[in-house]
Design a protein around this nucleic acid. Structure first.
Length: 878
DNA sequence: CACCCCACGC
DNA sequence: GACGTACGTGGGGTGC
């Protein structure tokens, strides 16, 4: 077997880990984020690479032999934060526990150690893999040496081989040093040739081969300016070349024999993990089942499995867990119920619970307070048994989500770990996952359920305190909690589908798809899988020799916007586009919906996720009813299959007009924008007038379209790049549009600046109703991350406030419909619109009520405007 | 089963 | 100059 040497750039990985992860600290108050990230990376490498030899190289100190050549080497770098430098000794200690050699050499950098050992190992016939985030190391790439660069985050890596290098960088490995010599490297303060960037450097090297040859043939360099620059900066170029060249004969005192690696001692490492508080990594070091939360570790728990529910078992407030396996609570079986209150802890088998009138009436009693995790799920599950749960006063899922929506582990064990510091087994470890998921024996099930219920009971007060600190009690109690039940009812009600209609559309599509498919094969001269971009790419861009506009990581891009640009180049293109369009309708919307329709009622029951999006919007799954086609007529027809559940009823739809821009006008308090809405102007036309400085009569369709895209950009927080993409213009032009917009609306401009400034201070942004979103990247040193966070800071209050408003409208509407005894049902919410079904005779009154409620649920400095319509199907409600 | 590419909505 | 750029969900293909 070939020996395999893995060389890690310790400093680089630690840096990456440090900046990629939030500043975690363990219970001893020591920062551990870099150590943690480093460990994750290390475990992944050990697993993936199975090295026979392993060494971690570190930089020795501040000065290196390179400083003799160039004093300012690595000058201008920010000082390593102390939160990171204090972690280096811990990383070294960690490596010792793993039995992994680490090494540093005075006056040399980690690169040189790596280079030297890599070359030695190569000579000995080893396979070598270098892992780092420092691109300089790419010069080591050869047939036997591959270099893995960390990309975004830490475990996301990209491996460079000679061929990948050529493809990605555009030069051969042996040209890499000269590439850097020409273009320099600002992070290491290497000058290069000023004015020569990556593009020019690659061009020069492709033409001349190497640096020497460029200078030998200076007269052949095209461009007077460029020639001059090269000439005057020759010395810098050669000095840069020297600086970036990695020493491959450093006087290191470790040899290949010293870095032999046979793996680590699991007990040793797990002991150290425990010391560090790396609970979650325990499971990864044994290669076996996660050993977290073994019964021994957990405090004892006394509970009773009930055979009959009696008065004495009930109490309030109580934590209640209706346990189901899997995600879909519309179909999942209830496996049992956990109940914990001051006086006892119980597991109630489903049959016992559902046969008990006493228990059922307790569930329905609004005076009996219950704490739950996911009230909507609980509510819907019980509703399936004909029980109308009441008194669900506290939902841990929603609370956790409101406190920090970006935390993506909102499950009882994770929250318990965070707030109580008590570990509980994760569902996945008790039930298994995917196809292997199964119900364990009752004692195991009962213990797990009761433990979760108990944790829920214990956590309630702490979590409420956190809501209080965030000033989110009202948001929680008056908005999200009541909404949960309303959404539960909508989901439970479901939407009826016209199966005949759907099937007929499916048939027609099948026919057309078949025809187009064979046309495409004919035009291509061969058959292939038209659904595979990987197979389609070579057909278009090699066989048919169409111009390559864009490549993806794995091949040619064949996305719609690319194909659109090729539309006139070959008659196969429009066929592919229409095939894609129809194929999407067939697979996602026809087949996808048919798969989920109930047999008896022909209804679909989506699930709204109320605790997921970062902005406060809802999302919808299985099926997603928030992305049913509307833009193109072909797709829009799908909506003809969405019908009222009672014959003679109608589908009624009401949507907010420009709610986000109105919200913006309000929170930015921009006079001009407020005026525009108060005057009921067409906002896109108005924007066009202001951005292009023209009169209303002179606004062309083109101008309005562009203004609309700018408004779209403001609402969704897209970048100049995004805007340029959507308008098919240059990034510079897009930037100008945005600037002109902000000049036109100074109130908006001020708001944008203020909100970012404010968010930098506090670390988060808020909506009108105090929804919160943390934006740690606002202080990122990475330009892109930082600007993305800035756009998010500007956009989230807008989108989030709009989400708050429609949620409030739903609550108000629900109340009005009950009060006035409407039969109409709320069915769906699609971000800025509500879809209902109603008997025909209610329509006249319904439209008044819905419009009134939606328009007046909140008072802003601009009016809210609602449009509505209705018809026999969703399609007709347009 | 995880990942990529692609496409739908707001 | 930075190199990847609104948020979601889902389907099909691909490779482990």
């Amino acid at each position: 077997m070939t020996n395999k040497l893995v060389l890690l750039d310790g400093n680089s990985i630690a840096y990456r880990a440090f900046f990629a992860l939030p500043l975690l600290s363990n219970d001893k108050g020591i920062h551990t984020n870099a150590v943690y990230g480093f460990t994750t990376m290390l475990l992944k490498i050990l697993e993936d690479e199975q090295p026979s030899h392993l060494l971690v190289a570190f930089d020795a100190g501040k000065t290196t032999f390179r400083h003799k050549t160039y004093e300012e080497y690595k000058g201008g770098r920010e000082k390593t934060p102390s939160e990171l430098s204090e972690q280096f000794p811990v990383i070294r200690e960690l490596l010792d526990h793993f039995g992994i050699r680490h090494y540093e050499l005075p006056q040399y950098e980690a690169d040189d150690i790596i280079g030297t050992l890599a070359r030695q190992a190569e000579q000995e016939g080893f396979d070598v893999k270098v892992i780092s985030g420092d691109r300089d190391l790419l010069q080591l790439v050869s047939e036997r040496v591959s270099v893995a660069m960390t990309k975004k985050g830490i475990t996301n890596i990209e491996t460079y081989t000679p061929s990948f290098m050529e493809e990605k960088v555009g030069v051969r490995t042996d040209q890499f040093i000269d590439l850097k010599a020409l273009m320099g490297d600002s992070s290491d303060n290497i000058p290069g040739v000023p004015g020569v960037g990556e593009k020019t450097a690659v061009k020069l090297l492709t033409q001349f081969g190497n640096l020497d040859s460029i200078y030998d043939n200076l007269d052949q360099v095209s461009g007077k300016k460029l020639k001059e620059k090269l000439e005057t900066n020759k010395e810098e170029a050669y000095m840069s070349q020297q600086l970036v060249t990695i020493e491959v004969a450093a006087p290191i005192e470790v040899g290949l024999a010293d870095v032999n690696y046979d793996g680590y001692d699991t007990t040793e490492v797990s002991r150290y993990f425990k010391e560090l508080g790396f609970q979650s990594l325990m499971g990864r070091i044994t290669g076996e089942e996660v050993e977290e939360a073994t019964p021994e570790d957990l405090p004892e728990l006394h509970f009773t499995i009930l055979e009959e529910v009696k008065e004495e078992h009930l109490g309030q407030p109580a934590a209640l867990v209706v346990e189901m396996l899997g995600e879909n609570y519309h179909t999942a079986e209830v496996e049992g119920i956990g109940l914990v209150h001051e006086a006892g802890a119980y597991f109630i088998p489903t049959s016992v619970a559902m046969e008990s009138e006493l228990f059922k009436s307790w569930l329905e009693d609004s005076q009996q307070e219950k704490y739950v995790f996911d009230s909507k799920k609980t509510y819907v599950a019980l509703k399936r048994f004909g029980i109308e749960a009441n008194g669900l006063s506290f939902d841990l899922l929603i609370a956790s989500y409101l406190i920090n929506p970006s935390e993506n582990h909102h499950d009882i064990p994770s929250i318990s770990q965070r707030t109580l510091k008590t570990p509980i087994s994760y569902d996945e470890n008790v039930y298994g996952k995917g196809a292997k998921m199964k119900v364990p024996e009752q004692s195991v099930l009962a213990e797990h359920v009761v433990r979760k219920t108990d944790a829920l009971f214990q956590m309630k007060s702490q979590v409420v305190e956190q809501l209080q600190e965030n000033e989110q009690r009202e948001l929680f109690n008056e908005l999200e909690m009541p909404l949960s039940t309303i959404l539960g009812n909508m989901e439970h009600t479901g939407v009826k589908l016209d199966l005949e209609r759907l099937n007929a559309m499916g048939e027609e599509l099948k026919e057309r798809l078949g025809q187009i498919e064979s046309d495409v094969y004919e035009l291509a001269g061969e058959t292939f899988n038209l659904n595979s971009p990987k197979q389609l790419g070579p057909i278009l861009f090699e066989k048919l020799e169409l111009p390559v506009i864009k490549k993806t990581k794995t091949g040619y891009s064949t996305s719609a916007d690319i194909l659109e640009q090729l539309r006139d180049k070959h008659e196969i293109i429009p066929k592919i586009l229409i095939y894609r369009q129809l194929g999407k309708l067939q697979s996602t919307y026809i087949e996808g919906l048919l798969k989920l329709v109930t047999e008896d009622e022909h209804k679909i029951h989506t699930r709204f996720n109320q605790a997921l999006t970062q902005t406060g919007r809802l999302s919808s799954t299985e099926p997603n009813l928030q992305n049913i086609p509307i833009r193109l007529e072909e797709g829009r027809k799908i909506r003809q299959a969405f019908i009222p559940s009672v014959s003679g009823w109608k589908i009624f739809a009401a949507d907010y007009s420009q709610i986000e821009l109105r919200v913006l006008a309000h929170i930015a308090n921009d006079d001009k924008l407020i005026q525009a809405f108060n005057d009921s102007e067409d906002i896109h036309t108005k924007t066009a007038m202001d951005v292009f400085h023209v009169n209303k009569e002179d606004v062309t369709d083109q101008m309005r379209r562009q203004a609309k895209a700018v408004n779209f950009g403001i609402v969704y927080g897209i970048s100049d790049f995004g805007l340029s993409q959507s308008l098919g213009i240059s990034r510079k032009e897009a930037k100008t549009f945005i600037e002109r917009y902000l000049e036109s609306y100074p109130g908006v401009k001020d708001y944008m600046e203020e909100v970012v400034q404010n968010a930098k201070q506090t670390g988060y942004v808020t909506t009108l109703m105090n929804r919160r979103r943390y934006l740690p990247d606002l202080t990122s040193r990475n330009f892109n991350q930082k600007s993305a966070a800035e756009r998010t800071a500007m956009n989230t209050p807008i989108q989030g406030t709009a989400a708050d408003i429609i949620k409030k409208a739903m609550i108000d509407l629900h109340e009005r419909l009950e009060e006035e005894q409407f039969e109409a049902n709320l069915l769906l919410q699609v971000h800025d619109e509500l879809i209902l079904e109603a008997p025909e005779h209610e329509l006249e009154k319904l439209k008044d009520v819905v419009v009134d409620v939606m328009e007046h649920t909140i008072e802003l400095s601009v009016p809210l405007k609602v449009d509505y319509s209705y018809g026999p199907t969703w399609y007709d409600a347009k």
